[in-house]
Simulated scan of single mutants.
Amino acid sequence: MDTHGERRTQGERDAITIEIGYALCSAVFAAAVLFGAVAGPAYLFGPPPGVRSLLVGSGTVLAVVVFLARVVSVLVRFDRGSRSGRPDPTSPDS
Rank of each mutant, 00 (worst) to 15 (best):
F67T: 01
F67E: 02
Y43P: 07
V76D: 11
L44Q: 12
V61G: 02
R80Y: 13
G85Y: 10
V66N: 01
P41T: 04
S84L: 15
F78S: 05
G50Y: 15
R77T: 11
V72W: 13
A39D: 01
L68M: 14
S82D: 09
G57K: 08
T60V: 05
L62N: 02
A42W: 09
R80A: 15
G46H: 10
L75A: 09
T60M: 07
L44F: 11
A37D: 09
V61R: 02
A39N: 00
A69V: 09
S73Q: 12
R70M: 06
F78D: 04
G50I: 14
Y43T: 10
S82H: 13
P47E: 04
F78T: 03
G50L: 15
G57W: 10
A69I: 05
L54T: 00
R52L: 05
Y43Q: 11
P49H: 09
A39I: 03
A42T: 09
F45Y: 11
G59N: 04
L62I: 04
R83Y: 10
G85D: 15
G40K: 00
R52M: 04
A37V: 14
V38D: 00
V76E: 11
G59C: 05
G81D: 14
R83A: 13
L62W: 05
L75T: 06
R52A: 06
V51T: 15
Y43M: 13
V66I: 07
F67V: 04
G59Y: 06
F45V: 06
F45R: 04
R70S: 04
V65N: 02
V71A: 07
V64Y: 11
G57A: 07
R52N: 04
A42R: 07
